[in-house]
Design a binder for these strands. Sequence first.
RNA 1: GUCCCAGUAGCUCAGCCGGAUAGAGCAACGGACUUCUAAUCCGUAGGCCGGGGGUUCGAAUCCCUCCUGGGACGCCA
Length: 559
Amino acid sequence: MSGIVDEIRVNLSKALESSLQAARAGGSIKVEQVPAFSVEVPREKEHGDFATNLALLLAKPARMAPRKAAEILAQNFSLPWVEKVEIAGPGFINFYLNPGWVYQALPRIVAQGGDYGRVNLGEAKKVQVEFVSANPTGLLHMGNARGAALGDSIAAILDFAGYDVTREFYINDAGNQIENFGLSLEARYLQLLGQDVPVPEDGYHGEDILASAIAFKEKHGDNYAGAPPEERRPALVAFALEEKLKAIKKSLADFGVHYDVWFSEQSLYDDGSIDKTLDFLKERGYIYESEGAQWFKATNFGVEKDEVVVRSNGIPTYFASDIAYHRNKYQRGFEWVIDIWGADHHGHVPRMKAAVKALGFEPASLEVVIMQLVRLYKGGEIVRMSKRSGQFVTLEELVAEVGRDAARYFFVMRGSDSHLDFDLDLAKAETNENPVYYIQYAHARICSILRQYAEQGGHMPDPSQANFNLLKEEYELALARKLADFPEEVASAASGLAPQRIARYLHELAGLLHSFYNSHRVITSDQALSEARLILVEATKITLKNALGLLGLTAPERM
RNA sequence: GUCCCAGUAGCUCAGCCGGAUAGAGCAACGGACUUCUAAUCCGUAGGCCGGGGGUUCGAAUCCCUCCUGGGACGCCA
């Protein structure tokens, strides 16, 4: 299923358990049950290849010194491929394996190719990742861009970890924002026709709205000049929404982000889902009326305040459609629902969870990833962004300025709960200050070696025939060790919804390749050694490419 | 005022579901290209992990408290 590291870990755990059972049977360790111990890869390589804290955990229940317990466990312990067992520190048991064990990973990597690193942590569980979900009333900004990069990478990682993933964009094409959008468009349209109609103060003032109005006028001329507003506005909105949505889809596609489902909020009104959902909650007594509005009893579920779902003017709130939307998600069979929201929505989380519970689903199955805000720096200064004034850097502009790969890497190299300072100058620098190139360069270097080898008439050796015992150098061992770790990294990035782990892993892997490259040659006069090293770099190339893919980055063959 | 996020090297941050001597990049300093790409490498230096208390064999990590910065608290989304 997964990698060699995991297999060894499992085998060591089993052997430790039987060792403990033997000790219990012999009466030398008296405990009722096996504690939840771990077998870990120590940070320090002086502490062996693997280590366990079992003896430390036994100390209290068995009432004995941890080192003593460790000694007993070690005595009962025997595995052919474990070269040395050592007791160290307060009572850790360290395992030293036959040095060649890591090289067993290499033929597997080459055989698995693009699938290397896949694990079945998810067991095909259906998971939905909903991200960006921006109002289709404007262009995508930096916050949306971070959401796009994060969401897409999280989805890719979950897919690689064995989940059945659906990427979804929720289109907020209903409600107040759309109302506002219509008024703003109408004002611009009428202005174009020479009327003095101001754009509402809290409306959309951006140039893109004006552009939509111009395009509308080109198509329809002054046909709507005298039309009643209730006819004119929907026409403008429908026209502009389609145009905007098309632009959003294109920006995201250019950013390497593709969705499985584009879900319209309006459709929840059209098919009666919102009414049905509200009725469902009403029947269960979770809705009450006060001051002419209808409220959801969030306080029943431990939330501080109740929340309006239908305003006193009869129009449902965003929260109402969001409840209906989440009900729809569960009805579609998703067992794990992941929403990626900006930090400005975090107050919405408790009531959304309360709503999920009220709907009869498990609130823990809804996971909201809160993404802290992005600050943009240029020339050492903060670039101010404001949607209202229409002044913000769009996703398109960002990609045009720094390139897709650099942009995506910068967005995922930090944890989602860290504020992100995006340094435009650094992202576009083609220097060693920029970590993106450092990683991609490692891939390109390997490609260059393989290219030259092929040009000299060499053929890629058969991994099963290679003699990996020839790889004795420290850097070779470290590189192979890192490669063997990849499946574990995928699993941990998936369970933590943490793409930054992959970013970090990539940087470390690239670093090891560069170190190796600078001290040893791959193509040498020693044929057998060259072949072993060719497999090593081929496996590195595969792993780099797979990991880059999880972050939506390209793996260039030349730079 | 209540809640959320953050506080770790000069700077930007990893590590945070407890493990052994706290890491990386950049910046600084000193070295390495007649070699498969120097967008690279090697080395040096840099730390009361915001302060204080607690939990235990063990705390950057968990709990309490205080301080600092950012954000959220609407019949907006």
